[in-house]
Amino acid sequence: MLELKLVKESLFLNVLEAILDLVAVASVSCSSTGLKLQAMDAKGVAFISLLIPAKEFQFYHCDKDLSMGIAIGDMVEAIRSADKDGTITIKASDENFRNITVSIESPECNETTSFSLLLVTLKRFCIPELQGLLKKYDACVQMPSVDFMRICKYLSNVDGDVDISTIDKGIRFFALGKCGCLNVKYMQPEKATDIDISVQAPVSLTLDLKYMNSFAKVSALSNQVKLCLSKGQPLVVQCKIGQKTKSRIIYLLAPKIKG
């Protein structure tokens, strides 16, 4: 049986809200240690992996490992109507493993709304072990998420693709659209401690811009974001969620390749 409880204004829900423009259904695995969510966008271009340890929830109990396909779009839609201080309880039982129950309790505890959400069938993906994969990556950029968001905002003025390339002591974002082009150079400053650009080998990736803007939304939930690039490999964008938590979100974005 699984039971987890959270307040409406929790980070978990904010994260779900932020990923909804990319995905509507997700594979959610729960164990005694916490919750993992994996989802791929409808076009099969981006992949999201979210990890939230059990202690981040107001209440968390899972006595048996569970894996389920959840229409998170429908779930978030229902939760949106709840009072902002309301408490949300999500339950799945072993006896009837075809749906989950989401209950919303008002702050005064005088009103409870429950709805049953049918589970969906989804493929599970075996992604390579990420820390091992990233050791082989050519370049990593740790930067404040406000910088990343600003760069994505600049890029959103151009409609098309973005090339992210390593340059001497930094990286370059270059976008070419119908109305012109945009060039952002982001360098390693001499003193700042919250920027760390490490390049093992030169690399350049071409990526679909619209996904970058979705990624920027989630990085708003964290101070720092890390981008990792490697030739012919997906761009990895990872960030911790919140300040003192071990929750983290990782995006993988497939590059454009020579056709």
Binding site: M40, K43, G44, V45, A46, F47, K123, R124, F125, C126, I127, P128, D161, T206, D208, Q233, P234, L252, L253, A254, P255, K256, I257, K258, G259
Partner: peptide, 14 residues
């Protein structure tokens, strides 16, 4: 000309 690769090309399914 560049074409979009699929993310599934980078990992297997089960």
């Amino acid at each position: 000309v560049r074409k979009q690769s699929q993310i599934t090309a980078f990992f297997s399914t089960s």
